[in-house]
């Protein structure tokens, strides 16, 4: 597969992730959408890594996965805390603070 195709796939994934964040109301789904964005970036990194013949990109991809895991852990904990308090994970109901 050529670099262009991989970048196209990565862009498509990134767009899906962005649209997921913008359109979905469920906090967990938004979290998943963010993960898709990060994975799109990972894909691009690895594609570039292969294209350039350097290992640096793959190393960053590992870092990104680690960070994504940490983010997911923290994110799920926050969602859990909110669910305990409100019995809902709809982000649109979170607007006590505005203006």
């Amino acid at each position: 597969m050529s670099l262009v195709w991989m970048l196209t796939l990565s862009t498509a994934l990134f767009t899906v992730g962005v649209l997921g964040v913008l359109l979905r109301r469920n906090a967990i789904v938004i979290l998943m959408a963010v993960e898709i964005m990060l994975n799109a970036a990972n894909l691009a990194l690895i594609a570039f890594s292969r294209h350039l013949g350097s290992a640096d990109g793959q190393i960053l991809a590992f870092f990104v996965m680690t960070v994504a895991a940490a983010e997911a852990a923290v994110g799920l904990a926050i969602v859990l805390a909110i669910f305990r308090l409100r019995k809902s994970v709809n982000v649109d109901s979170l607007n006590r603070m505005k203006w």
């Binding site: 962005v18 964040v21 913008l22 359109l23 109301r25 982000v91 649109d92 979170l94 607007n95 006590r96 603070m97 505005k98 203006w99």
Partner: peptide, 15 residues
């Protein structure tokens, strides 16, 4: 009132 309080609107601003 631009600051609607909805996190998805904020994400839209970001985009």
């Amino acid at each position: 009132y631009l600051q609607t309080g909805f996190v998805r609107n904020y994400a839209l601003f970001l985009l």
